[in-house]
Nucleic acid binder design. Structure first.
Lengths: 225, 225
DNA sequence: AAACTGATTTAGGTTAGACTAAATATTACT
DNA sequence: AGTAATATTTAGTCTAACCTAAATCAGTTT
């Protein structure tokens, strides 16, 4: 039953999980882009993974794909490892948050259950990774977070940055430079009506930061305070 | 020139390196056993790796295989990673020396140059792994060691254990229980003429340890004192 | 409703690395 | 030197993933 999944299959499942967080189903093309392979290859794999026993996903020709419970468990296991690794690299080996994603992308597939346990323990069973993304616990339960994108925070209100789920190292370096790390407390000063550009003031930092809508919807903040 | 080597190829090169430490050349069958695959598969791969430009190994039908300088460099790079990982797991994550080999066998292929550097630095640029095996430095130079197998130590002499290059977890647990870890100082009390069984007394341990020849030739000790 | 466009699938091919069975080479023994 | 035993290689398959090109489907526009 619990087959050993190949690295490739794990990557498919992880991507599908991520894509179906916002949409009901993921499309072949989305997956092909995320995995950087051809759409034809994706179709092949989806057909295979939907015909295993038990199937990892539900797939109907031309109508997208979603994970089954089995597939979701497998995806969560990999995501847990990915995020634990990111956290560990920052905490124990002096990595910065822009360096860890690529590294974790490879290490996640080489992590034994024992190593997962030891790292989890060494970190004190953390609930969030360096980007503020939630880490599923050993039973694969995701911590609940109540959050809104920065783009939806009301002008004049204060909040705390919870999550910056971005993978681009350059973007992350900039964000860090401005003080917009998870945990930072700030006040939303203004938002222009036309293009939604925001001016925000981070506590203990003099100069205000200007954030466009494209970046703003990738920064999640606490709902109150 | 510097092609990206697959995990499989890396494993071939590593095994050939290990086998040619004691013999001039490695045979197809030795490799097949070490890698746990068929001899026919090994032949195929050897032919391929001897025809690359530059070749990783010199191979003559029916007469064994040896690494070229290129192949040796590649092998040393993997061995360096393997041993750094073993050391790190013990030092930083509470692993025991019998748990690390299997883990490192997988992680060594997932280690980036950056991670290698960070771990090396975190450990203080160590020269030996938990089994006492030498770790090649960043330039892939092996530390020199002067050692002899326990089976060649003269009776009545004292020495220090330098290296126990064994991978069997059960064996390693026993050895550790008897106090025979790298660094331990001991005196060789006696060796029976017929089967070479040795009695040795480890400093600060009351009860003598009995070591047979099979194990004895896998324990390397300092030449003097 | 026909036609166009973009998304998706099918068909057929490639590569890496493994396998088994059969053939051949080497080595060891008489 | 001849033969048996062992080691090695050759030949032909297999599987997992990938690819490109061609065909088909779905959704929008005329």
């Amino acid at each position: 039953m619990a087959k050993r999944l190949s690295t490739n299959v794990q990557d498919y499942l992880k991507r599908i999980y991520e894509l179906t967080l916002t949409e009901e189903k993921a499309t072949t093309t989305q997956l092909a882009e995320a995995l950087e392979i051809s759409a034809a290859s994706v179709t092949n794999m989806l057909q295979k993974l939907s015909k295993t026993d038990p199937p990892y996903l539900t797939y109907t020709k031309h109508h997208g794909v979603a994970l089954t419970a089995t597939g979701k468990q497998a995806a969560l296991k990999i995501i847990r490892r990915h995020r634990l690794i990111e956290h560990y690299l920052v905490k124990a080996l002096g990595y910065t948050w822009d360096e860890v994603h690529e590294e974790a992308e490879i290490l996640e597939h080489a992590m034994s259950p024992l190593l997962e346990k030891r790292i989890d323990a060494a970190l004190g069973y953390p609930k969030f990774d360096p980007h503020g993304d939630p880490i599923p616990d050993a039973q694969l339960q995701m911590p609940k977070i109540i959050e809104i994108p920065l783009t939806q925070l009301e002008v004049g209100h204060s909040a705390r940055i919870l999550r910056v789920p971005n993978e681009n190292p350059q973007v992350l370096r900039d964000i860090a430079k401005w003080g917009l790390r998870p945990g930072a407390h700030f006040k939303l000063i203004s938002r222009t009506p036309y293009d939604q550009t925001m001016r925000i003031n981070v506590d203990d930092i003099d100069e205000d930061v200007i954030v466009g809508a494209a970046l703003g919807c990738q920064i999640f903040v606490s709902l109150e305070t």
